[in-house]
Design a protein around this nucleic acid. Structure first.
Lengths: 166, 166
DNA sequence: CGCTAAATTCAATACTTATTGAAAGTATTG
DNA sequence: CAATACTTTCAATAAGTATTGAATTTAGCG
């Protein structure tokens, strides 16, 4: 496998994981493409490389920018926009955690709070009350932990992993 | 909101999060229903409660059993199967982590290894090599960390959360 | 065994989510 | 300010995923 094949493999695999991650497949491919590109790319180039439509390219680049995983790289004297990926991997990890937490964890905690704040639930059904409060306990711990990871400096991020695994 | 409404809300919300989690919506609802049921339920009862077909109920219960989140509760003298949820929440968390890791993390590490094991990648493109090995670093750390969480005893699970967040 | 209740399978179908591409919008240039 | 180069939007459509339910298989019982 030579370099070009390696890059293609990476792009295609990153896209496939996107799906199993609840992340749009094409968005993940665009991200992968920008990650392995030396130079920043135009919308045209992304469309060409990934064989996707203009609208699709635009929408997914925009979402990546919203996530903070891609930046606009405006070149003086050039009218069109170039896009470049955030390549500091600790930043990438933090930003993915932030977005997934927002979508997967926070709304859940909100609803668990609503359910368990109801008067008399624990009196009426100890079992239901316990299920809800146990889930809340784990969800809150996970939430706090992920917050710390995201707010910490980059060395701390990997350092925390190390601390946990030893 | 009285108890019954609370349970319904819980089932419906757990189902919605399932989706944003890459977990089948109905499977999550079946899980929620069993979590909040005092008694173990038959396929019929699940179909009835969630208004789903026999096939659907069967498939999702089976997947939950594969995940170790639900058990068969066979009653002597009764021909039909009853299903009951694992209610120890630390077990539930461990089992969900195990399955999501298997689907979301392990295949990724495998492919990153394949890509980076190729001769000359680093010579040909320092940048690509760095991207791949940085991702590998984080993925492996996460993998090891999750392994520890899953193998540890239940007190350690919540204890580790606490250790991290202080 | 054969009968029957229950579980499972799977092709057809419904539902959900992503993609296209032409039309509309916006900004730069001469 | 009109021509142009590019970006964004969005309704139509395609692709992907989940669900149904009738047909099939499996297992308990006399």
């Amino acid at each position: 496998m030579e370099l070009q094949k390696g890059k293609e493999r990476f792009i295609q695999s990153w896209g496939a994981f996107g799906s199993s991650w609840g992340i749009n497949r094409t968005m993940a491919q665009v991200h992968a493409l920008l990650l392995v590109s030396q130079e920043s790319l135009t919308a045209e180039e992304i469309m060409e490389e990934l064989q996707i439509s203009r609208g699709n390219a635009n929408m997914n680049v925009r979402t990546l920018i919203d996530w903070g995983l891609v930046y606009k790289d405006l070149k003086p004297g050039e009218r069109k926009e170039y896009f470049v990926a955030e390549k500091e991997m600790s930043q990438v990890v933090k930003k993915i955690i932030t977005e997934r937490k927002k979508k997967e964890l926070e709304p859940m905690i909100k609803i668990l709070d609503e359910i368990s704040s109801v008067e008399g639930v624990c009196k009426e059904s100890e079992e239901f009350c316990k299920v809800v409060s146990d889930i809340k306990l784990f969800a809150s711990k996970a939430d706090t932990m992920l917050d710390k990871l995201v707010k910490a400096d980059s060395n701390w991020l990997i350092g925390t992993f190390l601390k946990m695994v030893k």
